[in-house]
């Protein structure tokens, strides 16, 4: 389906947020927070990119892309009016209906924040349906933080704490330096009645899930969004297999209780 680039925001030196709208013959496609699309650049190929916009605005499709390979590189250099192909949405997203009434801990590492943003929008829209919201966002350095302005707005909201931490920083950084797990003790939540959404490097999610279970959060209330090589998004290319799961079709969001045993195996 053709989609037209309507706007682009440079988030960091290598990361751009694209706003797309349906092109000729394409329909707006509703999505659930945590799902992804296959985005195609003519002559270059297709990549799996999480949807990072608001699910209430399906005609305004938002993707935050880091230039990593040739397709993502082209995407970050797209100008307004260019056309890309979009297939999707694919996969199982964040189980928002299951976590109603609970405190929610969100831990994002690097570009793990974009697939979580639609979930944050949804929770803020139905603010009373959720308990405390604790967000911990880690990145390599201050200049790698995305959605900076928007985050400042979230910080001002009652019942929501947003902590930021980076791996390395200069003297101009007044925030925390260290791993996201080091920020966890400061987060206030009621463990048995808490759900957690994690997205970031696998080792970060693994250690965070361990820290959360150690504090008493049930394993089936912790959800991880996995990333694997993907070509087809429909469970036929075989690339994204993780144990018995096709990450594209059965995930990318999985309960920790279901995948913990496979996370423990090296090179699974």
């Amino acid at each position: 389906m053709p989609y037209v680039v309507r706007g682009q925001t440079r988030e960091t030196p290598d990361t751009v947020t694209l706003v797309l709208s349906p092109g000729p013959g394409a329909e707006p496609h509703p999505f659930a927070p945590g799902q992804f699309n296959m985005v195609y650049v003519f002559g270059l190929g297709e990549v799996a990119i999480s949807i990072s916009g608001d699910a209430e605005q399906p005609d305004r499709l938002v993707h935050t892309v880091r230039a990593a390979g040739k397709v993502t590189h082209a995407l970050t250099e797209m100008t307004s009016g260019s056309t890309v192909g979009v297939r999707g949405p694919y996969g199982a997203g964040w189980p928002l209906s299951k976590v109603r009434g609970k405190d929610v801990v969100i831990v994002a590492g690097g570009l793990g924040l974009p697939p979580l943003r639609p979930a944050v929008y949804e929770m803020l829209r139905q603010r009373d349906a959720y308990g405390r919201i604790e967000i911990i966002y880690g990145s390599r350095s201050p200049r790698d933080l995305v959605y900076y302005e928007e985050i400042q707005g979230w910080r001002a909201l009652p019942g929501l704490r947003f902590q930021t931490t980076v791996d390395t920083a200069g003297r101009d950084w007044y925030g925390d330096v260290g791993l996201v797990t080091a920020r966890l003790p400061d987060a206030r939540f009621d463990p048995p009645n808490t759900a957690a959404f994690l997205c970031g490097p696998e080792i970060m999610m693994k250690l965070t899930a361990q820290a959360l279970t150690a504090r008493g959060v049930p394993e089936d209330s912790i959800f991880l969004s996995l990333e694997r090589n993907m070509k087809c998004a429909v469970g036929i290319c075989g690339h994204c297999q993780f144990g018995p799961e096709f990450v594209c079709r059965d995930g990318p969001v999985f309960p920790y209780s279901e995948i913990r045993r496979f996370l423990a195996v090296r090179e699974v």
Partner: peptide, 26 residues
Amino acid sequence: CFCNTSEEVPDLSGERTERWRRWDSC
């Protein structure tokens, strides 16, 4: 065994491109 990969094969003019599927292996 069904694993496969996708290949994008553009022609030299840049006006036409083809999508191929090829057997891949784990």
